[in-house]
C-alpha cells in the first residue's frame, strides 16, 4: 500500500506515512536529552502523578495512618510494633499517631503498615454489579457510537454537501446543553408516566441499562465523529477514487480499504469513548441510580455521614479508576495518534 501513496498537499502526508511506516519513525534516533532534562521530567511527572499515588497508597492504610502529615508514603509490612498502629491495637497509639503532625519536627516517620482491610470492607459491599453495569454501559454505548459514527464520519469526509461543516457543528453543538439543565426534562421523558400536561408520554427508561447506553451514545457521538472524520480525511483521495473505479461498492470500499487504514484512529476513538462513558457521574446518579448503578455511584457511597474515612474512600476511588487508568496506559500510543488527527485538516 505504501508504494502507491501519492504525495498529496502538505501536512496530511506525514501523518499518513506514520501509519504506513511505523518502523521508520522508531528507527530515527532522537537526540538524547541531558541528565538534567531527565531529572526535570521525572520530577514533573511525579508531582503530576502524586495525587493519584497518594490516593492509591491511602487505600492501603489503616484509617489512623491515612490522615497523618507528612503523608506516610512507604509501605513497610509489619512495622506496627514501632510506629504505625494496626487494627486491634488499643486506641492509645492511634491517638499518638493522630497527634504526629504537631510533633513532626522530631523524627519524621514516613512508613506505614499496609493493610487490605479497606478493600475487604469495600468488596464486602458487592462491587461486582456496579463494575458490570459500568462495563456494559461503556462498552455498549461505545459499540453503538462506532456503529453510527464510522459511516457518518466517512460520509462527512467525502464532503457530500457544501454544508458539511454545519453538520459537523451541529453534532458538536448537541453537547452545549449542560446535563444539569436537561436533567429534569430527561427524567420526565425517561419516566413511565411522562408529563401529564403533555399527554403523559414516557419512555420508561429510568434505571435501565438501555437508557444509560442511549444517553452515553449521544454524549460521545460528536467527538467520535469529529475524530473519525479527520482520520478518513487522511486517506488520500486517489485511494478512494481508485477503489471506486475498480467498481468496488461502498461497503467493500469501507471494509477492505478504508477501515484497515484508519484502524489506529478507530482504536483511539473507542478508547476516548470508553473513558468518557466510564467516568460519567451526573447522569448516572440522576437517572440510573435505582437499578443500574455504575461505579461512580459505588464510590460516592463511601462519602457517608459516618465520618470521613479517607482510607476507605481512597480504596473505593482506586477501584473506580483502576480499569480505565490501566486501559489508558496500555492504549496511550493510540491515544496520542488518534487525538491529534483532527488538527491535520
Amino acid at each position: 500500500m505504501q508504494t502507491t501513496l501519492p504525495r498529496t498537499s502538505s501536512a496530511p502526508s506525514t501523518a499518513a506515512r506514520r501509519w504506513a511506516l511505523p518502523r521508520r519513525r522508531r528507527g530515527v534516533q532522537k537526540d538524547q536529552a541531558s541528565p538534567a532534562w531527565a531529572v526535570l521530567a521525572w520530577v514533573v511527572a511525579l508531582v503530576t502523578f502524586f495525587p493519584v499515588l497518594h490516593m492509591v497508597l491511602t487505600g492501603f492504610k489503616h484509617e489512623s495512618d491515612a490522615v497523618d502529615l507528612p503523608p506516610r508514603l512507604l509501605p513497610v509490612p509489619g512495622i506496627e510494633e514501632s510506629a504505625a498502629p494496626a487494627e486491634g491495637v488499643s486506641a492509645e497509639p492511634a491517638a499518638d499517631a493522630a497527634d504526629a503532625p504537631a510533633e513532626a519536627t522530631g523524627g519524621v516517620d514516613l512508613r506505614f503498615d499496609p493493610t487490605l482491610e479497606q478493600y475487604e470492607t469495600i468488596l464486602g459491599r458487592e462491587f461486582m454489579p456496579f463494575f458490570r453495569n459500568s462495563a456494559f454501559a461503556s462498552l455498549g454505548s461505545t459499540a453503538l457510537v462506532m456503529l453510527l459514527a464510522i459511516p457518518a464520519a466517512y460520509g462527512l469526509a467525502l464532503r457530500p454537501t457544501k454544508k458539511w461543516k454545519d453538520v459537523l457543528f451541529f453534532f458538536i453543538s448537541t453537547r452545549f446543553l449542560p446535563a444539569s439543565g436537561v436533567i429534569v426534562p430527561l427524567y420526565i421523558l425517561f419516566s413511565a408516566n411522562g408529563d401529564p400536561k403533555l399527554g403523559g408520554f414516557g419512555l420508561d427508561l429510568l434505571g435501565t441499562m438501555r437508557g444509560l447506553i442511549i444517553l452515553y451514545t449521544a454524549m460521545n457521538l460528536p467527538i467520535a465523529i469529529w475524530m473519525l472524520r479527520s482520520f478518513f480525511e487522511e486517506v488520500p483521495r486517489d485511494v478512494l477514487d481508485a477503489a471506486r473505479v475498480d467498481g468496488a461498492g461502498v461497503m467493500r470500499e469501507m471494509t477492505q480499504i478504508l477501515l484497515p487504514m484508519v484502524a489506529p484512529g478507530i482504536a483511539a476513538t473507542v478508547f476516548i469513548s470508553i473513558i468518557f462513558a466510564w467516568n460519567e457521574f451526573f447522569l448516572a446518579v440522576s437517572l440510573a441510580a435505582v437499578g443500574t448503578s455504575t461505579v461512580p455511584i459505588f464510590m460516592v457511597k463511601f462519602v457517608t455521614a459516618e465520618g470521613l474515612f479517607w482510607a476507605k474512600l481512597a480504596a473505593s476511588s482506586t477501584m473506580a479508576v483502576l480499569p480505565i487508568v490501566l486501559l489508558g496506559w496500555i492504549a496511550q500510543k493510540q491515544l496520542v495518534r488518534g487525538l491529534s488527527m483532527g488538527a491535520v485538516k
Binding site: 511525579l46 503530576t48 464510590m299 460516592v300 480505565i324
Partner: peptide, 30 residues
C-alpha cells in the same frame, strides 16, 4: 519534556497522562 530521549521516558509519559484517565469525581474527592 517527553519528546526527548531519556531513561524512563515511557514511564514519565504514562504518569503524565494519568490525570486525564482518572474519573473526575474520584479526583475531585481526592
Amino acid at each position: 519534556l517527553v519528546n526527548h530521549r531519556f531513561p524512563g521516558r515511557g514511564v514519565v509519559r504514562t504518569l503524565l497522562i494519568t490525570p486525564f484517565l482518572v474519573m473526575p469525581a474520584a479526583a475531585a474527592l481526592t
